[in-house]
Design a protein around this nucleic acid. Structure first.
Lengths: 189, 189
DNA sequence: GAGTTTGCCTATAACTATTAGGCAGGAGCA
DNA sequence: TGCTCCTGCCTAATAGTTATAGGCAAACTC
């Protein structure tokens, strides 16, 4: 009898793929066991429970997304950086809807503090360095950017813009443009 | 044996209350049956299945929220209307987190078209009348407002602003203010 | 090569969703 | 008042998911 060689990492990765295929809410220990052709209780040697699986997928997605965003904004500044930042989020969500949903999972304070969520916040602040905002405006702006991007992406994923003109891409460009000029207007210089 | 007098409407309302207490995802046919002190299969005379229950709660929440928003913006225009619109959403979400989550349930095209979701879109457009935007800018703006408000509220409900200064209310005011000036700048007049 | 550990297994129990079919009490009619 | 019917909640049964306990054999350790 060949051992499938289960590990928390492999299970997490497979869980992320499963999430993209069937939706994060549909990620279940049972489905994961089926995918590895293994009985359900076998997974409990590697995962505490199904919430543990969800959290692992969330942390994995946060890391992966942070890497992508970091890569996208590297070497850019100002409007360019803002657009790269925004597009990185949107593209990740479109490519990996299940992982994106996972990244929105509510984490406990300790878990959140140890997650790549911290990098996300740092990168958002870095983007804003190009706009010369002082506190508390910079914090407000970070929150606004997070809200717009997350809100737009989740409405788009929910199909909100599917059956109406203009295309989602056009509104996205318009919004990124608007945010750029808004932030420039709010600049202290 | 007294009959509890179940109806789809009573079940929907109780489901909405349950959602606010335990979260929309935790709303279950079983929990609802317990709440009415009735056996689980009894509910199937009134509800097609658990997805049907979810959809009913979603439609109920959309109606209730639309009523609130309509009430809030009545007789207002411009910045005033924008703030009232925004606050109505945020307050509803804070007061009824489960119902708010329900209102974000993905509905089928036919169901969505027959829901109060249509009124929401109309109200957003009405707010923008005060800013003289032409198409397609008006549509872009509707999408942006929806994104910001939904994004902010869902990040706030997820606890994203809990452990950092400044208070969520301050950022909210700053954002509404910023959107107002952004829209005025984009005005055609 | 014996002993130990690891990793997947069977068995079991609880909860949820769903369907089928039964029974009793209230509504309508004589 | 008595009969019938039908509505509304019931019991019974099946299936899927989560979770725990304990077994057994393959794979490391020395």
């Amino acid at each position: 009898m060949e051992r499938p060689g289960l590990t928390p990492e492999r299970l997490t990765r497979a869980g992320a793929e499963l999430a993209d295929e069937v939706g994060f809410d549909e990620v279940t220990i049972s489905a994961l066991a089926r995918r590895f052709d293994v009985k359900v209780p076998s997974l409990y040697s590697h995962l505490k429970n199904s919430q543990d699986l969800r959290i692992r997928i969330a942390l994995f997605a946060l890391e992966e997304l942070a890497d992508r965003v970091a890569d996208a904004v590297a070497g850019r500044a100002g409007r360019d950086a803002l657009a790269a930042f925004a597009d990185a989020y949107r593209e990740y969500a479109r490519e990996h809807p299940g992982r994106y949903a996972a990244a929105r999972l509510r984490l406990g304070p300790e878990t959140a503090a140890a997650s790549a969520g911290v990098r996300h916040a740092q990168m958002a602040r870095a983007i804003l360095r190009g706009y010369d905002l002082d506190e508390p405006a910079a914090t407000h702006a970070v929150r606004m950017l997070g809200s717009v991007f997350h809100g737009y992406v989740s409405l788009e994923l929910a199909g909100g813009f599917e059956h109406s003109a203009p295309a989602a891409q056009e509104s996205w460009d318009w919004i990124v443009d608007s945010l750029d000029s808004l932030l420039r207007n709010r600049s202290t210089t």
